[in-house]
Write a protein that binds this DNA or RNA. Structure first.
Lengths: 338, 338
DNA sequence: TTGAAAGCGCTAACAG
DNA sequence: CTGTTAGCGCTTTCAA
């Protein structure tokens, strides 16, 4: 008998369905004793409101949308799970959309989510969190949204962030303070602005320590393993190779490590390598990577809380939440050879 | 004006709402000319039926559920995307649930999906596809389901599969035919039965070639990198170590490779290593792994088609679909030293 | 082949 | 503090 509806509960508790509705929706103006009676009836009949009916009548869906790009499987899954584990207990469902930034499909998918499914709010994860066109569309439709780790136009909407730039600067400082001077940097995909901040942090550290950046040591990557491998081949075969290589993410750093093996260059004896993300690959390769751990899951959790809070309060939370990254020291760094 | 409802369309086309409904649902018994008129009106008004209304009235949700375990981020994401890219164009939404087999939460989540969200059908991916209790629950509730790569009780429900066992046997044969005799096998997590088939394939090949299996070379793993690393340390430090190691998945094979590096054992000169899955790690470590590529995404796509077909036809498709795996040769295998 | 009427189970006004 | 009365936008009888 998993089929109790609101009328059954009302009858059981001896109240009107409106009162049941009030209790279910935690509305005020219900006497404590009445509330208890209704709650007892709900428990006894194992009543659970039908979502489609709530949606239709209330014009909301208790469903959130998560739009994400492709910064890597573990990253995406971490975000998904962070969102799910916070929205589910609060009564919200989640629908996901891999949003290819370049494919025109994204805007259509959003229309779909807003109209057909009438989603209540949207979470945008990198690099979609910087997709201004999508943000405008949602904004004009009046759909609340929270951005995860945005890098541009941060004033307009609530967001959660981490300190990519500072963490990157700190790690660069560590390399410098160990004696490295010729430090290469492999940049990330240009669409993924958050990864761009890592480059900036690197430059700030160099500037702060008064070390001129040798532009021939700055190589373009695209966040993918192979691009790191290519960049590694290029850097390690230079006449005067760097003593340390900082890749804007771990997948690319992994590529560098593989290039080093191919060229019989030892890590960290001949060259130090660091990455960013603390992706699984950082632990799984040999030698393991010194890198920066991002609080992805935490950001996802907080962003979800912010969004649901906004749904309830009716207005955006203007206080961004900051989740610091931290350096993880492993085996891939040593002082340069004298 | 993104707000046309069925009445607007009916008025525009000069028919009743029931006729519009018929057209939208592709029901028969509509004159071609009428259908065209309605379709024109739909297009003109950009009409899109509201899901919650359809759900409430029709007692179905146009939503599928995907329950998955944790065989690795890339695996999960591949399945998700395979499902999404086939169900979306067919008008179905997807909700996902990471189902921890041991946590009691799974059954409750299923109740939730069935009752609150009234999902129309469910896809079960490994290792949940072997979770008989969950299957029974869905079955008793009359929810159609399709199992992805199940290993037990395959008669009762539609499923898609791959040939883990045969692929594993073939790869083992290759090792044997290259001269390997002392071949170790690192088993997978006992809850993940599909991975168990790989072990069986290994044993079949050994038996077929008349090579007795040295049970001291069979080591238990749990699908995780670290367990592979531990197993690798153990095997490679034996008095008479194996000349080849077959790990039931790539993550564990990656662990073996790392153990080999730590012990200064060369791959493939001193020992050959193979895995299973063609996970990203297989390409990213050095040397890269010879492994078996599974058609995860294809299986997910096919399973989704089967499920939606069943939803439409009203009865399960009894023909399982087979998606063969294939061996990917990379750098981690060589003939044993004489 | 088409339409009219009656809900699906809930929330939103408005009264009491 | 609580109940009554209308719908939300669609599908489902059942009749025409």
């Amino acid at each position: 008998m998993s089929h109790a509806i609101i009328d059954d509960v009302a009858a059981e508790a001896g109240v009107s369905i409106k009162t049941v509705s009030r209790v279910v929706n935690r509305e005020p103006n219900v006497r404590a004793e009445t509330r208890e009676r209704v709650e007892a009836a709900i428990a006894k009949l194992n009543y659970r409101p039908r979502m489609s009916a709530r949606s239709l009548a209330g014009n909301r869906s208790f469903t959130l949308g998560l739009i994400y790009g492709h910064p890597g499987a573990h990253y995406v899954l971490d975000i998904q799970e962070g969102v799910l584990e916070t929205c589910r207990p609060l009564g919200y469902e989640l629908v996901i959309r891999p949003g290819d930034v370049h494919a025109g499909g994204l805007m259509k998918e959003l229309q779909d989510l807003m109209h057909d499914r009438r989603i209540d709010g949207v979470l945008l994860s990198p690099p979609i969190s910087d997709h201004l066109e999508a943000i405008d569309l949602l904004n004009n439709a009046g759909i609340p949204l929270v951005r995860i780790a945005p890098t541009v136009e941060k004033d307009a909407h609530p967001f959660v962030e981490t300190n990519d730039l500072e963490a990157s600067r700190d790690l660069t400082m560590q390399l410098i303070d160990q004696g490295h001077r010729r430090i290469a940097f492999i940049t990330g995909h240009p669409d993924h602005r958050a990864v761009g901040l890592r480059h900036e942090g690197f430059r700030q550290a160099m500037a702060e320590r008064g070390i001129p950046v040798d532009e021939s040591l700055i190589v373009a990557g695209d966040n993918i393993f192979d691009s790191g491998q290519r960049a590694g081949m290029q850097l390690l075969q230079m006449a005067e190779p760097p003593t340390a290589i900082f890749a804007a993410n771990d997948d690319m750093a992994g590529g560098v490590v593989k290039a080093a093996h191919a060229l019989n260059v030892r890590i960290p004896e001949d060259v130090s390598v660091v990455g960013f993300d603390d992706a699984p690959i950082a632990r799984q390769i040999w030698p393991s990577l010194t890198t920066i751990q991002q609080p992805i899951r935490d950001m996802a959790r907080t962003a979800t809380h912010m969004l649901i809070e906004q749904l309830r309060a009716g207005e955006p939370n203007p206080h961004p939440s900051m989740h610091p990254a931290r350096i993880i020291v492993r085996e891939s760094v040593a002082a340069p050879k004298a």
